[in-house]
Design a protein around this nucleic acid. Sequence first.
DNA 1: CGTGCAATTGAGAAGTTTCAAAAAGCGTGG
DNA 2: CCACGCTTTTTGAAACTTCTCAATTGCACG
Lengths: 261, 261
Amino acid sequence: MFGTTDSPLMDLPQDDTRAPASRPVRFSAEKAATPSAQCSSCMLRHICMASNLDDSDVARLNNVVRNWRMVKQGQALYRAGDPFQSIYAVRSGSFKTVLSHQSGREYVSGFFLSGETIGLDGISTEAHACDAIALEDSAVCVIPFHLLEALCREVRSLQQQVHKMMSAEIVRETGQMMLLSNLTAEQRVAAFLLNISARLQRRGFSPTSFTLRMTREDIGSYLGMTLETASRTLSRFQQEGLIRVQGKQIDLLDLEALDMR
Amino acid sequence: MFGTTDSPLMDLPQDDTRAPASRPVRFSAEKAATPSAQCSSCMLRHICMASNLDDSDVARLNNVVRNWRMVKQGQALYRAGDPFQSIYAVRSGSFKTVLSHQSGREYVSGFFLSGETIGLDGISTEAHACDAIALEDSAVCVIPFHLLEALCREVRSLQQQVHKMMSAEIVRETGQMMLLSNLTAEQRVAAFLLNISARLQRRGFSPTSFTLRMTREDIGSYLGMTLETASRTLSRFQQEGLIRVQGKQIDLLDLEALDMR
DNA sequence: CGTGCAATTGAGAAGTTTCAAAAAGCGTGG
DNA sequence: CCACGCTTTTTGAAACTTCTCAATTGCACG
């Protein structure tokens, strides 16, 4: 995870990204062998796609989400241009999504924690628009999208959940654009720390003490500033007693003051 | 529209945003009175939600999209906080979406031309996240979202189209974030002009001569700069012979050079 | 216990914003 | 139809934030 290093919960590094795309969507497929009933017993169930589903629907979802995959730190879950077949729910660990510009520049467009969903960008063109890189050794649930779509045609609550997830991603990005265009470097870094803090808290981690898994360069890119400015801003916050910084280890000392920025 | 003023195609300023939310979704509703078969004869059909649908599916969609609404210049199609019921396809005219920050600052998060869809931000929280303001006298098709969802459960191609639209909005915003965080003011303005140009061309308007319906302040906000910087940049482009500016009237003289920025 | 990547820090340069003033455009009402 | 008032746009100059380049330090991994 992000804050605390958790013991590896799984093995089976099966790569099942290559979904049976040509195979027609039969719902007999739902009844296929299911190694372990993940969703129903998953700790992330309430913050994942399965939230707001009743037990029987979770069981059906579970038949769509049959496989998961491990991704080692620094490795790509997918790359820009890869044909789109599945979306992914982060089981453990964390990811960044990276968009490359023609100029060779790279832009970190998002960070994703456990329970969050990656890959929605690929739906529109049927090819992924960015790279998804693991920030630490991570695992994802593989959700073949055509199966999910098929199930959404049958399960209304799931359909609504998927629509809400996509909409939430749109809203998140709108907020990020506002941040990039309106806030100072200080305000952006403060907002970033508070955002991470809130998301970790939601997952049961300390909201005030955590390890950033990404580099200063990643943070800077995500926040629209250079790595030096990101570093300097963190240092300044430390000098002012708002936070404590020790490399990637961060302690938030004054949440109120951070929010004031 | 954006470039050319088109004659008002319609009357009937019926406001039907208040959809029959409590009424159970019966598809008999699809057969209800349909004043005019809009979608099937709509010039925007191929760039709208109806693209990639066959005739019979367009007819069914048409029963969901039964009403449209006029919005006068400067008026709001919806406001942040309004309960979410419908999404809207721009029939004629154009809109901006505006996000307000706690600090009182406003941020223009997007511009929308005919055939484009507004309101997807409201799905996640069931309340709109921003204001949608008409940049000129405009008209929109009202698409009650619960009806659209119901139809998507029956018509696979429509379901896919809706998912692609949402994903495209995610990708668009990702690109905008990259623009905001990586490009100089000059590059942003150039990218903006080329983007508008391409979208107008797609709609059959001149890609090199058009009227911007938004103010310099809107442009600046959208591009993460002050209105003065936006204005100055346009002036500089004119001095360099890349464009011709006369207030809101823009002529692109050297598309290649603009693209080089 | 090096070696190399990541992070910090400094100082000057550059781009953008801010404040200010004037010009231009637009709609309204006489 | 023109005059008036208001908004929008343009342009200038100084101030400020952020970037760039550069050097140093710290940390992790082999």
